[in-house]
Amino acid sequence: MLALEFPPINEILRWQDVFPSFNKIAIIAVAAALIGTLIFLIAGNADGSKAPRGVRNLAEAIVEFIEGQIIMPTMGRDGLGWTPFLLSIFSFIYLCNVPGIIPIIQMPATARMAIPLFLSLLVWIVFIGVGFKHQGLGYLKSSLFPPGVPAALYILVTPIEFISTFLVRPFSLTVRLFANMLAGHILLVTFALLTESLVQGGNIALVPVGILPFFMLVFLTAFEVLVAFLQAYIFTILAAVYIGGAAHPEH
C-alpha cells in the first residue's frame, strides 16, 4: 500500500525566521519591492530616445498595459493619474506571486493572508478617500442610496449596498488573491508529494506511474505562471474599478 502522508496545511506554510520577525514571506516581499524598483530604475536610466530594448522595453510594456488595458477601460482618461499607484500594485503583486513557481523559492508571498490583506485595506482606504474627496458626503448618499430605487426599497437596498461596498469589497479582494495563490501552492505540493512517494516508494512497478503526476506538476507550474499574472491583473483592475466608481458615481 502506498504510504502518502500529506502534511497539514500549516506545515507547508511554515518558515523559520531568518532573524526575529523576518521570515521567507518578508524576504519575498522585500525582494519584490527591490526587484520592482530595480527594473524601473534600470528602465529609467536607459536611453529613452531610441526604441526601447530589454528591461526598458519590459517596463514600458507594463506601463502601457496598465494604462491601456486597466485604466482606460475602467476609469477613462481622467484615471491616468492613478497609473503609478496601480503600476506599483500590479508589479508588487506579480513579483510576490511569481516566486510560487520559481524553483527553490517555491512560495508565493501572497499565499499568506498578510500581504493581500494589507493591499486590499489600502485599496479600500483609497477608494473611500477618493469618494469623499470627489463627492464629499454625497458619496455616502450615492453609494448607500442608489438613485432610481423606490423609497420603500431603501430598507432592503441600503444594508445590501453597505455590506457589498464597504465590507465585501476588501474581503473579496483579499480572499481572491490569497486563496488563488494558496490553492495553487497546495496543488503544486500535492503533485510533488505524489510524484516523490511514487518514485521513491520502494516499489519498482510504481516508478513509471510516477511520471504522470510529474507531468501534471510541470503543467500546473505553467498554469501557475498564468494565474500569477491573472491574479495581479484582476486585483489591479478591480482596484481601478472601485476607485473609478468612487470618483464618478454615474459610471
Binding site: 480572499v175 481572491r176 490553492a183 491573472l230 484582476i234
Partner: peptide
C-alpha cells in the same frame, strides 16, 4: 475578467 473575478470569489 471582471465577471470571472466576482463569480470566482464564491468558490474561493
Amino acid at each position: 475578467f471582471l465577471g470571472i473575478a466576482f463569480t470566482e470569489a464564491l468558490a474561493l
